[in-house]
């Protein structure tokens, strides 16, 4: 009955029909998180992703112990409000399944605002992520021909801001966290392409750039309803600026 229902649902077999592996395998999934789902916190995402894996019939490996749970590790939390085309997570399976099956089965249980782009066997560790690339698009009636230049200049010189860390709030030069920065006009909006420090050693939330623009330029003015910005995480890099996979 279980497997019949599931076949009807997603066209796949019950996970119990799959043979056990000799030892668990790790797969990396690359997925999007866009649109409405940018407001879902990392904690909520972690919790709900487990249910996606169950619905999709992925033969997850469960921790042994008093309260068994599936093993799922996310690369780097995405700040609330940011979209992404490059989220990564590793999952551990205990029965035979292919990359294509994982992708197809998961996508039956996801929406166009969050779906799997790729599934592969990883040969890197999330700790090797050093940078993340973001694309920021700003619409505002206050944009002027020289805005791109002003903005580029702002982020290429020392820029001191109060920055929160786990334990304290202190003034730092946020330019130290900016690996590269480009601003230009596209389709009437200001577009910024920037690579920021990311990971456990140094990390900069791209919202700091927005805060700096609000504080030190007149782009956002006071007309909050007619100004908007959108941040998209597009890529991860390692220390040598090779794309992280």
């Amino acid at each position: 009955m279980l497997s019949e229902n599931r076949k009807e649902l997603s066209g796949c077999h019950s996970k119990f029909e799959r043979p056990y592996l000799e030892s668990p395998e790790i797969f990396r999934i690359k997925f999007t998180k866009t649109g409405n789902l940018r407001y879902i916190s990392h904690l909520d995402l972690q919790r709900t992703f487990h249910r996606v894996l169950v619905r999709a019939g992925i033969p997850m490996w469960y921790t042994k112990g008093f309260n068994p749970h599936a093993k799922l590790v996310f690369a780097l939390p995405l700040p609330i409000g940011c979209e992404s085309m490059c989220e990564l997570a590793d999952l551990k399976t205990e029965r035979e399944i292919t990359e294509d099956e994982i992708k197809a089965q998961l996508n039956t249980q996801l929406t166009d605002e969050m779906y799997i782009l790729d599934v592969y066997r990883p040969d890197t560790k999330f700790a090797d992520i050093m940078y993340a690339e973001y694309r920021i698009i700003i619409s505002s009636p206050n944009l002027k021909p020289d805005t791109a230049e002003i903005v580029s200049k702002l982020f290429s010189s020392p820029l001191y801001m109060m920055k929160r860390t786990k334990s304290e709030e202190k003034e730092v030069n946020i330019s130290d966290f900016i690996k590269s920065f480009e601003a230009f006009f596209k389709d009437g909006a200001l577009e910024i392409k920037t690579v920021l420090s990311a990971g456990s050693t140094a990390n900069l939330n791209p919202e700091y750039l927005i805060a700096a623009l609000k504080d030190r330029t007149d782009i956002f003015g006071c007309d909050a309803l007619n100004c908007s910005y959108n941040i998209m995480r597009t890529r991860f890099y390692d220390r040598d600026m090779f794309e992280f996979r």
């Binding site: 407001y39 916190s41 409000g81 249980q109």
Partner: peptide
């Protein structure tokens, strides 16, 4: 406009929709 409000309030996940 609603999106710009969602950014300004606590627990934005309450308002955004997009659930499976």
């Amino acid at each position: 406009i609603i999106n710009s409000l969602i950014k300004q309030v606590s627990k934005p996940g309450r308002y955004c929709g997009g659930e499976f």
